[in-house]
Amino acid sequence: MGLFDEQLTAVRRFIDEAEEAGRLRRLDSPEAEPWPSGSSLVLEEDTVLELGNPSIGSLSMLVWAAEGEAHDGAVSLVGPDLAEASGTGLPFAQVVIAAGDFPNEYDSYRDLRDAVYDTKLKGLSVRTMPSKQVLWCRVSREASDAGLSIGHLGAALLESLRDVPGVTAAEALFVTSGQEDISRLSGAAAGARRLVDAMMKMYQENNFDCETCEYQDVCETVMDLKQIRKKLTDGKAV
């Protein structure tokens, strides 16, 4: 059993159903060269496409899995790619799965999270609000004209994740099809966030008064959280 088993099952189900319906595309091997990295501020007047404006749907999710439970290098898309967008905005979900061996969950989570935060592509401004799990991006006209695609973003994310110690495989799913599809992932994302928040609280506050803790419900039902708690209370944590 893994910490995010329930969430991974929900994501796999979403991918399988989209694939069966012929709505999922694999963007694993973009023919283009890797997109140059760099922080970008894209103002409205330079924006050709906005992704994940919270008013039309936005979701960001990061989970890890045991070795062998991610399709290494897989970048999947449900919905139009950047160049196929018909308007000036698309809903946007980004689901990242890293598989490997993570003996210290807290450090590993922070390393994985930082790898996602630090993936910055030239001409794409990305802003995220972790507590709301939203990801708000702007694509510059210049980057769009030069051919920036979801495949470039996926490839860059996976490359960053593979640099994290312990990671043996990484995959990414993007959804731009609509709010309805994003809503189907939102339960899993909220569950993942709650697990992460519970884990962060254990490590950061070192307080194990379960009677007063708002995460009591997840800690009692998720085996991995129980194990983390035991490890910390036994003083075995790093």
Partner: peptide, 12 residues
């Protein structure tokens, strides 16, 4: 709400 992680607060 208990979210005190520096990096998360910085990106927020």
């Amino acid at each position: 709400a208990g979210r005190r992680d520096e990096r998360d607060l910085a990106v927020s």
